[in-house]
Write a protein that binds this DNA or RNA. Structure first.
Lengths: 213, 213
DNA sequence: GGTTTCTGCCTACAGCATGTAGGTTTGAGG
DNA sequence: CCTCAAACCTACATGCTGTAGGCAGAAACC
């Protein structure tokens, strides 16, 4: 059989996606791999280590997807890509996604994949030219909304009322994009408002010039 | 001892808040109540029923809090109240909150408490005079953001970067309030935009009248 | 008042999961 | 050929879930 840590964690992730996160037990995993439960303890410390391994694996895969989705994009396009990366991942890999919802251990937090994911996320928001100090709030808001939406979809909170949640996602993206473009307490907000007023003034001046037909 | 279903579920909820949701086992519960594990099975069908019972209990308590927080309030005030109700509940009763994050059984979905919670939530959003068809998207967005924020706080996603999450909450409320006040695709949006332009035009006309000093 | 029934908790046990201790096979290297 | 280490094994201690059936006290009925 010649297992190793990587193979065990890959099997665990598959199991999580197929049968649910809670179905990831040492026994079930051993059955899947065709070995005795006790044999797995030479490759992983304990069950918690298996779950943390799935978390780390998922983090890297999510970062990969995010990277390809936002490559060459900025502003709203990038935001749409970011949302899609998360949503698709959560739907296609429910077990891995569930693993990401659990608190991460210190080693996971400091992993290269975690850093990569954070860097990619921040790249999306830099495209909106927010104040540096406001960036963190913006990322938290968007992250919270995405996570919350997926969580509520998962528990079926949206199943009992039409229309289906795709439309709501669209609205959510519109709102977030709008909020990022004119962020409260941001210097660019005042500038853009001023610009809007200028444009309006020009339009009005134009209209004044040609008397109403 | 003379236990009953209600007392068992109350003890289970306390246990969940104190020792964590996963610590709610039949054995631990029995220890707490000073009886043998098997004795509890005359009051609750199985462990899953205990967890679902916590869910129902929490739903009612959350509805109570929400009711008092939004009583006599509307618009932004009501939104702030709603957010506070959820956030305080999640912090003070982490085990009950965790129970609410699990899929609800059919009986819970149709319970009076569930209906009450939905009705109270909708009351908050009616204060923003959205299109009837857009109300559902607005509630979903706000619900998602609150849930997501609390989830990310719980797993410690905000712990590794300053400033602390209170400021981010404030920003999130600002954004949501703003979004609700000028909802995309809403009839009132066009009206308000038009009004803004009119005001701007007046201000500019005023400025033109007095030559630059 | 005595007997029956019901209630509420009990003991005993089967089944399955985690994790430890220590044994057996197999192949590489001196 | 002998040693050693890797990888998997069996056996077992412990703990949890859920079922079966027993027992004692209170309530209800005759």
């Amino acid at each position: 059989m010649n297992l190793n840590r990587r193979a065990v964690l890959a099997a665990a992730a598959e199991l999580a996606d197929r049968d649910g996160y809670d179905a990831v037990t040492v026994s079930e995993l051993a059955r899947h791999l065709g070995v005795q439960p006790a044999s797995l303890y030479s490759h992983v410390r304990d069950r918690a280590a298996v779950l943390e391994g799935i978390h780390e694996l998922a983090l890297g895969e999510l970062a990969d997807r995010l990277g390809t989705e936002i490559a060459g994009r900025s502003g709203r396009e990038a935001l749409v890509g970011l949302v899609r990366a998360y949503r698709d991942f959560a739907r296609e890999r429910p077990g891995r996604w569930a693993a990401l919802q659990t608190p991460a251990g210190p080693s996971t937090v400091e992993s290269a994949d975690a850093r990569r994911l954070v860097a990619l996320t921040w790249a999306v928001f830099r495209g909106y030219h927010l104040d540096e100090g406001e960036l963190v709030h913006a990322t938290r808001l968007v992250g919270a909304t995405i996570n919350g939406f997926l969580a509520l979809e998962r528990v079926g909170a949206f199943d009992h009322r039409s229309p289906d949640s795709d439309v709501s996602w669209q609205r959510a993206i519109d709102v977030l994009d709008g909020a990022l473009a004119s962020w409260p307490g941001d210097v660019t907000e005042a500038a853009e408002a001023a610009e809007a007023v200028t444009e309006a003034a020009e339009a009005i001046a134009e209209a004044e010039r040609e008397p109403h037909a």
